[in-house]
Amino acid sequence: MSLVKLTADATQREERQRLEMACQEYGFFYLVEHGIPKEQIAEAIEAARRFFALPQSIKERYGHASQIVYPTIARGYSPLHGEILHPEAGGDPKEVFDLGIENEGDRRPFAGRTRFPDDALAPGFARSLLALQGTVLNGVVPQLGNALADLIEMEQGWFRRHFSPPTLGQRVIRYPARGGTCAKHTDGGFFTLLLQEELPTRSLQVWLRGRWMPVPSLPDSLVVNLGDMLQALSDDRFKSTPHQVAHSGQTDRISFPFFVYPDVDAHLTSRQGRHAFSAAEMMLRNMESVETGNGGGRARELQ
């Protein structure tokens, strides 16, 4: 996979070509010089470990049924085997806590507030995750979003108009040692940013050229993968590549994916007009598919 940077010289022709090639050939790339402090990531990892170490009965107080957003599975805790990303695989052996942008009083789908454990139960958990969210939303998302919109030849200001604010699906995932998995699927959004723990085990795998390829965790990098919405908006020029996780390491693995979608009210059309969709309808359809055990993204197409 390619290394891509979005610094001051990222507008140079060579950087643009590298990004475009990665989107067309792989649908995955490493983003370096992303500006997220190591200390912030480390703090979130430690806080996540403390939360997942809590008794099961306490974690389940913050499950989907306790959340007040719509759909409820967009926020809160999901236990081991609680999510099905490919129907043939059954429930994934992983634990998850989902959150989003905290906007009290917003009654639209995927909006509202997350019910977190307080600091006495899970010290630093909510605070560190929301701090990480702020850094990602204010620094990484606008730069990358504008660069991708430019590559698919949208008019100037397109990304700002349709992603102000974006809809964000943020997760913290614990993959248990020696067997944590996430079944094969694609992501439904515009793009996904993934912060991985820097472990020697190559747990993340992507489907390229007819086989599963491991994606090592490179120091000081984000993994970026393109989602189904971006594939459609590029008139299928860019790839939303299937991927999975098979964690065989001797320790648990913590990861932080950020799923970036348009504003939930957006109606989008590709440049050539081959694809048009309502963001809310596409997002709700994908969430319903996961909730009913039919898989994530284009999982049903994957054999």
Rank of each mutant, 00 (worst) to 15 (best):
E14D: 10
R18Y: 05
E20Y: 04
M21G: 06
F28Y: 13
F29W: 15
F29Q: 07
E33P: 03
H34V: 03
H34K: 01
A42F: 04
I45P: 11
E46N: 13
A47L: 03
A48M: 09
R49L: 09
R50P: 13
R50G: 07
Q56M: 15
Q56V: 10
K59H: 07
E60L: 12
R61N: 01
G63V: 06
H64Q: 12
V69D: 00
V69M: 10
V69F: 07
A74G: 09
S78V: 11
L80H: 10
G90I: 07
D92C: 06
K94Q: 15
K94S: 09
V96C: 15
D98F: 14
I101F: 08
E102M: 13
G105F: 12
R107L: 05
R113S: 15
T114P: 00
R115N: 14
F116D: 01
D118A: 11
D118P: 09
D119T: 12
P123C: 13
G124T: 11
G124S: 10
S128W: 05
L129G: 10
L130R: 07
A131T: 15
L137E: 14
L137Q: 13
V140Q: 02
V141Q: 02
V141R: 03
Q143M: 05
G145Y: 09
A149S: 05
L151A: 02
L151T: 08
M154E: 12
E155S: 14
E155R: 14
F159E: 00
S164Y: 07
Q170M: 15
R171N: 02
R171C: 04
R171H: 05
T181Q: 11
T186H: 06
D187G: 02
G189Y: 06
L193V: 05
L193Q: 02
L199K: 02
T201C: 05
R202A: 08
L204W: 02
L204S: 03
L208A: 03
G210T: 11
V215M: 06
P216Y: 03
S217V: 04
P219Y: 01
P219G: 09
S221T: 04
V224S: 03
D228P: 10
S234Y: 05
D236N: 12
F238G: 01
V245P: 00
H247M: 02
T251P: 01
D252Q: 04
D252P: 08
R253H: 07
I254Q: 04
F258V: 01
Y261N: 14
D263V: 05
T269M: 09
Q272D: 12
F277D: 06
A280H: 01
L284A: 12
L284E: 05
R285P: 01
N286S: 14
T292V: 14
G296A: 11
G296S: 13
G296V: 00
L302G: 10
